[in-house]
Nucleic acid binder design. Structure first.
Lengths: 216, 216
DNA sequence: CGAGGGGTTGACGCCGATCAAAGCTGGTGG
DNA sequence: CCACCAGCTTTGATCGGCGTCAACCCCTCG
């Protein structure tokens, strides 16, 4: 959580409320360009950050899970949200007014570091995304995506909630058909198999082999 | 500059020195993974941030010009540089010890905001990079790259210092031959033409048409 | 002037986009 | 509880873009 380093007393004379929200799958946390007042801190579930290109073609630039914050760009002031953010599954999040964050930053300088660390984490993720989702053959990119899903949203068993082909295509930058073909093959080879409705387990070892394929 | 909001008196009893460096084209500012003590603030010139993938295949994830800072990830502590950073042309930079930044942050909280804004700027750049350098046909991506070069490093006339084919290929994620073919065609169509050694001028309008091609 | 490192160009094959159609599956309403 | 429907996944066929290999050229630097 964004405020984990702060003492409980910090919230006693808060001017603006911190609310707790539950978003159902597919619902919109906020829209790109829209001016807003709210930063969200994800407690459970997965959200996708979408960069809408001039055309209708949209590309997903990040997946964020528990512990990550959304909307920190509002601290810059006057610019509005940079992405559209949509819940992938059921999402549990805190809505924190920008004014509250600024107020707490002034009182507790350690919060500056919390914010910076979260920005840095997202920057690291973005850089890794450029490499792993933008380089190499489609099969490698999909395998990479599955492994990444296991890390960011996997439960205790490492099981993942499978995304729709359209989302995966918007992540790895291919057509939905190509994604479907690859996933179908992985299922056939039992590198991915269903354990419940929408819940899949991964053969992490074998997938890593595919990822490192072009390395030799 | 990173310290533009700070009063001159801030630097009077500084424990660690701020040095001024000049890097020649191709020289290394710092290496990925290496632990270091120095943040660089670019005053002139252009640097490339390289993410070395497990294989020898390297991908350039960002280009930074005057006003940007390199190595802010060291503020997190204990992790070392995330990228290898190489000067593209002659680069003029300040080397600032991490300890100095931390000390100044404690004395002047406004510096926290300066750092945050620079991280946010790099995050925005990375997101734009994912979309513009990772989507669409090769010709569009190269055109996008040229336009971006004009913005980040263009001089008063918008003239750019042309990159090597290898660098451009590492940016747009194609082979060097493909880049060469595309650049050659652009030169033939006079959308790009030489005005001096290594200095090229762009037909910005026409390039934008290519970029928006798939939009219709 | 000679050597070498890019850049340029051609031929060819493959990966993945596109168009098209059929099969599943979960959700909805009777 | 079952039948049906809409949307998603799967699969096939075809074609174009781009990677790869290879040769050549040009400019630069020693």
């Amino acid at each position: 959580m964004l405020f984990s380093e702060l003492p409980d007393t910090a919230f006693e004379h808060m001017l603006h409320p911190i609310d707790h929200f539950i978003f159902s799958p597919g619902s919109l946390l906020h829209e790109a360009g829209r001016h807003g007042e709210s930063i969200f801190s994800i407690r459970r579930g997965l959200v996708k950050l979408i960069n809408v290109a001039p055309a209708g073609v949209q590309r997903i630039v990040r997946l964020l899970g528990p512990g990550s914050s959304v909307g920190l760009e509002l601290l810059d002031g006057g610019e509005g949200y940079r992405h559209s953010v949509v819940a992938v599954n059921q999402v549990d999040a805190c809505r924190i007014p920008v004014a509250t964050v600024k107020q707490l930053q002034a009182e507790y300088p350690v919060l500056h570091n919390q914010v910076r660390e979260r920005l840095q984490e997202q920057l690291d993720r973005a850089d890794a995304w450029i490499v792993s989702m933008g380089t190499g053959p489609a099969k490698e990119r999909v395998a990479n995506l599955l492994l990444m899903l296991g890390e960011v949203s996997g439960d205790a068993n490492g099981d993942i909630e499978m995304l729709g082909c359209e989302d995966m295509a918007a992540i790895v930058g291919t057509s939905t058909e190509t994604v479907s073909r690859i996933i179908a093959e992985l299922k056939r080879r039992r590198l991915v198999y269903k354990v419940a409705v929408h819940l899949y387990r991964l053969d992490t070892e074998a997938l890593r082999v595919i990822v490192d394929q072009s390395v030799g």
